[in-house]
Structures are given as C-alpha cells and as structure tokens.
Design a protein around this nucleic acid. Structure first.
Lengths: 389, 389
DNA sequence: CACCTCGCTTTGAACGTTCAAGAGGTTATT
DNA sequence: AATAACCTCTTGAACGTTCAAAGCGAGGTG
C-alpha cells in the first residue's frame, strides 16, 4: 500500500507487460479492448499515476509551462497579472500542464532564466507577458525553437538583415521579399474570418490614426518574427469608452495616456482618436503612469480655454488621479477594471483575462501536442460602466 | 554544441568517471582538489547543467514547491497574494527551488491536487496560505509526512480523540495529556527568545481580550497539529494603528471587522481592543468583507449617540467604504496597504510580504535540506501613515 | 505449403543521474 | 612485514518510463 505503484506494479496486477500498460495510457488503440479494460481496472484499483520525471526522461516533455511573475509596479495593475496567472493555472491543468513561476529583473536576466529552466527542468514552453518594442526575448526563444506564446502582440522591429534571414528560415515557401501590400493582406487572413473582417472594418474607416494603426499591426504581424500570441484589443477598448461618452452627449473628449512608443499605449490612444474622428493632439496628454501624473495631466487639460468635458484614460491609475480632481460634471474612464476602479466607481475597460489566459494555454498546447499552426487571437474587451462616466 | 551535455560528456572531457563528476557536484570534499578543479573547468567549458528529471528519479527530490493561487475575491486583496508569490519565487530560486502553481476550488479539491502533484511531480513541499479554523489540509499533509509551511499560523481545533491520537504519534516522549499550563508555557519557548518575550509582554498586559487571545494562540500553537509557519502579527498591526490614533488625540476609536471565528479577524480585533484598554462591543461592528459593508458599518457606528472619532478597520476594503462616508474629521485606518489604500490615501497596516515569503522558503528549505527543526516565525507589520489618519 | 501481413503483445535498451560496492594505491598501525 | 585504514576514483545497477524492434498466432495469398 505504502509502496510506490509503478507501471510494473500495474503490469503484474493485470498480467501484461510494462509496455502494454504504457500503450493503454498513451496509444490505447493499439491494445485489444479486453486487455485495455483489464489494465484500466488495475490502474484504478492500485491508484497508479504516471511518474512525470521518468516520462520526461524518455520523452523530453515536462508538461511544465513557465511564466514570469513581475513585481507589481504601482500595485494598481498588479491584480491584472494576478488574475491572468490564475486563469493560466486553471486552464493548464485540464490540458495536462502545470505552471512554473520565475522572476527576473530585466529581459536579459529573463533570457538567462530561460536557459536555466530549459537545461534543468526541460520546460515545454513559456508564456511571456509585457511584450514591447524590440523585445529580445522572443527572438531568443524563436532562434532556439522553444515554444512560447505572448500575451500581448509582437511589436516587432528587427534589423532588416536579421529579419530576412529568419524569414527565409521559417517561411521557405512564401516570398521573402514580399511587397508591403501582401504583408498587409496576409496577416488579416490569419485571424478567424469573422474576427478578421470585424476588426478590419473597425480599424480602416478611421482617418489617419486608424490607418497607421493598421499598417503598424501588419508590420509586426506579418513580420518574420511573428509568433503565436493572444492580445486584448486595446483600441477597441478605448474606442468603446469614447463612444460611450459620445453617446452620453460629450463632444469634447480628452485623452490621458503614456508617452509614444509603448505599443499598448499607442493602441489605446488610437482607439480614442478613431472614435472622435481623428487624433487631436491638443486634447491629448502623455505622461508616465501614476495617480499623481494623471491628476497633473487632467488639471492641465481642464484648465485650457475650451476644456474637455470627459477624459478617457489609458489606465486606472491615471483615471484615479484625474477623477480625483475633476469637477462633478466631468466624466472619466479608466482601463483594466482594477480594484481601484471598483472602489472609486470608475467606468473602465475590462480585459477578459481568464479567457486570454485560456487561449494562451490553447495555443501553446496546440503547438506542443498537435503541432497545429497557431493563429493569433485578439479578444474584445468590455466596458464596465460605473458612476464616473 | 547543439548536442546535450550530460554528466558523461563532462566526465569524458575531464578524463574521469561519471561518478566523480557527480561527486564534484554533490559531495566535493570526496574529490581531490586537482581533480575537482579539472572537472569544474570542464563543466564551465561545456556549460553543463544537471538534469533535474534524472536527478529526481534517483533522489526523489524535485526541488519544486507548490503554492495555490486563489481567485482574487474582491480584487482589493488580490495584490497581497501577488506580492507574496513574487517574494516566494525570488526567495526560492537562490535556494535551488522553483515554485509551481495550482488552483483549487476548495480545501477538498486542494487535497486532491496535493495527491496528484505528489504522485506525478513528486513535489518537495507546499506553501499554504489562508489557513483557517479546522483546516483539513494541514492534517492531510502532516499524516503523509509531506513537508509544508503555512503563511498564517495554525488555528487548530481538532476533535479531542484525533488530537490525542496524533499527539501520541508525533510526540511519543512528551506527556500526551499535558496540562493547560504546560501547553501555554511551552509554545512561547519555540519562538526565538527575544520575539517570544516581546510578544508575550505585549499580549498579556491587556485585560480580557489579551488573555483570551493568548490562550487561544497557545492552544493552537502547542497543539499536536502544530507545524512550521510564518505569520504577520495581526494584533500588533491594529494595535499600532490604534495607538497612532490615540497619539493623535482620538479617544473614542471604533473597530470594523469580520464576524468572529476567522482567526485573522479575531486577532485584528484583539489588537484594537488591547490598545484601547479592553474590548468595547458597542464600538465594534462585524461584517463580511467589502466596500459597501464597510460603508454600512461605518454609518451605523457614526450615527450612535456618542460616535467614535476614528475607525480602525480590518481591511482596506472596509476602510475604503468607511472613509468614503466619514466626515472629514473622522480618521480611518485600513489593513494590507493595497493599491486602493494608496490611491485613497488611507493610513493602513502593511505586511512584510517579501520577508514573509522568504521566511517560508527558509523554513521549507530547512526541513528539506538540513532537517532542522523549524521554528514558527512571527513578523511585525508596519504602519503606513497617509492622510486618512 | 511456404510466405506475407496484420493485430496484439513482449523484450531489451535507453533517457541522465545517483547509490552501493569495490579497486587500487598510499599511509598508518601493530 | 603484514595488515588495516584511508583516500580517490571507477564500475555496475537502479530509479520509472517509453522507444525500437521483434515475437507470435491467426488469417490471407500465391
């Protein structure tokens, strides 16, 4: 009873060989039904469970996925990662995977950790968060053919030579020197038809901002370093918030976001710009994230001659600051549906984190198990309406 | 280069046998210095890393610790777990351990998961959070001699028979029917001398509440199901907040907490009661956690004939609700230093989460590696003063 | 009848590590 | 001088699983 139950124990109990038990577990169709049943009964009776370490040694598959746990920056957005992790863990278990955590101070340290984890634990794959422009992590992993998914689309930007080289390796059939037009066309095709069309329709009508957003997306999307990813459509989120404000009668709607260059921030601004019919720089402020910063930016916007009557903010932190000093009539929206938004009563954009996590696992499991070609997933956020707008 | 570097590769490169390489890694003192150096150079030159799976198969040590990731209840306290997890991950790595996540809906599911994880991944140990009265998880683990630490002290409460039975098994030498006095005396001795004395001095002087708190602690502490734990001294936290209010001139200080029976909640109330010189039920309200609940309780307290001028709350959620409706003169304190407290400017009690996590790893690693007898660790929280009090 | 194929099952080896035992040489002990 | 004790290192086996190959009986084919 207390002794370890191995495949040999089961084999003896069912009067078959080790390999037959293994086959029942891994390739049941090779085993005669009667035998299969007998083995299954033995497994159940003995409470046998396959030893992952031994299995790993033979197959090289650890069934372990790694995720980086970041220090919470200002704590406000911390719960986002928290919820995402929970979603990952829940989604991974039924697929037969477990989540391993690692910490890293920066991208270089993170790469060192990959190396370490791959060498010692033979991890099956990685889930990366916080992708950004010029992300060295994805190329490192891709070069070594390590399966991974990013939560956050790739923001691309490799040097031309490297890009061409990698493209030639990964897509030998397609034209390496594809024209801009084909690069623009192809990526959309990778989305599921409905989503792709829906998104295309939504992005293109908008004037300058919409177009530049689309081409930027295409650039990274069809780029040689493309890889499976899951993302929430940030632009749709801020657009929804903006439309909600328009519907409430607001005509001058300001935007408080982050400095240009952060993909996510640019997207959120593009959503706002698209909804009001074009980017109006005089109505937008860019600042690093933070409550005090949001307050300052809001003060600045609200003190202009013809001030906005509503503010769309790129984060709940900024929104919290803005809401704190805005006079009652001024509407404010945030982003992320954090606890702070809940407590303050901020209307905010909620990301479907559990869904996003589940799709990350799907994609990774697909690559690992099925070898299916992973398609990017873009999820729509939802607007949570509270009293602030 | 691309080929796997195993211990055999290193052995060949250094002109020694496999076992010698193994000895250099695990029992270096058995190897002559010159050989040791040669092997180490080979290891460095080849970039060898021990394969954990193979090592695990032989030794039964996975170097993996598991932690449950809970769904964030109301999101406000979510970041607490988040920070704790980050601390664990960071502390575990240098000690040679990695953190594995698992999700479970309730204690029973959690136990099933233990079983699964132990059988398939041969986990080395568990870190449990959210310990509570009648926790079945700890006894399950203890019965199977699985190493674990809890973040949160044991709240005990086994049926007498089971207690006696387990006591007889685990402490064959000591008297099973120990008197209350010895139970009270012994536990304090397990703390480091200074801490024990400090804590004893702090708890006992208080009148009714302090005494009952102390005996309750003793009961669970010296209880047969005691195990290594790390906790933050909740009572000290609320006491510090209360003293801060007393120092600011407040004389009638109310308390908003949770229904009796949650160990943590009772402790936080005891801290308040101790600081004001005794538990005054008319100044205390108990409710489930939540912003709206905090608001209601505060309204109730503040509408009494001789209302309190300050409110000590058992959580930032409750405090957020209370602070929202309290008139400017009324001071409010929370607990946990969440993002909400930061944004609202709530004075609150901060738990040293990174430190707590590190101590959890220390204790667990101590049991696993050194076989040292683990001593409970009680950490002092700190008061973060903001404008709310 | 000899041979091949098919369905099901078994056998031996291997994954990379550590344990248990022992080999060979040098030094200490009696 | 014989023997024990020690130090250093090596050899074979084992952990629990799956891979690769082969065994074996039944049925089909030339």
């Amino acid at each position: 009873m207390a002794d370890k139950v191995t495949i040999a124990t089961v084999a003896a109990h069912a009067n078959v060989s080790r390999q037959t038990v293994s086959n029942v577990l891994n390739t049941p169709h090779l085993v005669r039904e009667e035998t299969r049943e007998r083995v299954r009964e033995a497994i159940a009776a003995l409470g046998y469970r396959a030893n992952q370490a031994a299995r790993l040694m033979r197959t090289g598959r650890s069934h372990l996925l790694a995720v980086r746990i970041e220090p919470t920056h200002d704590g406000i957005n911390g719960s986002v990662l928290d919820r995402f992790l929970h979603g990952l863990t829940e989604a991974a278990a039924p697929a037969g995977y477990r989540i391993l955590l690692y910490a890293a101070a920066d991208d270089q340290a993170e790469i060192a950790t990959y190396d370490e984890l791959l060498a010692t634990y033979e991890l099956d794959g990685f889930v990366l968060t916080s992708t950004h422009h010029g992300d060295v992590r994805t190329s490192w992993l891709a070069e070594r053919a390590v399966p991974f998914v990013t939560f956050g689309r790739p923001w691309g930007r490799l040097s031309p030579e490297r890009g061409a080289e990698r493209l030639a390796r990964s897509l030998p059939a397609s034209g390496a020197g594809a024209s801009e037009a084909s690069q623009l066309a192809e990526p959309w095709g990778r989305l599921s038809p409905e989503r792709g069309a829906e998104r295309l329709a939504r992005s293109l009508p908008a004037s300058g901002a919409g177009a530049s957003e689309a081409s930027q997306l295409a650039e990274s999307w069809g780029a040689p370093d493309s890889h499976p990813w899951v993302d929430v459509d940030n632009a749709t989120g801020t657009a929804a918030a903006t439309k909600h404000l328009l519907g409430a009668g607001h005509r001058r709607i300001g935007f408080i976001g982050w400095p240009e260059g952060s993909g996510v921030g640019d997207e959120r601004r593009a959503g706002w710009a698209g909804a009001i019919g074009g980017d109006l720089p005089e109505l937008a402020r860019a600042t690093v994230d933070g409550v005090a910063e949001g307050e300052a930016a809001a003060r600045d916007l609200l003190s202009m001659p013809d001030p906005p009557t509503a503010l769309v903010c790129a984060s709940d932190s900024l929104a919290a600051g803005a809401y704190g000093i805005a006079s009652p009539g001024v509407a404010v929206t945030g982003f992320d549906d954090t606890a702070v938004a809940r407590v303050l009563g901020l209307t905010t954009v909620a990301q479907p984190l559990a869904e996003a996590a589940a799709r990350c696992v799907d994609l990774l499991a697909g690559v690992l198990d099925g070898g299916t070609a992973p398609r990017p997933v873009l999820l729509p956020p939802s607007l949570v309406i509270r009293q602030s707008a």
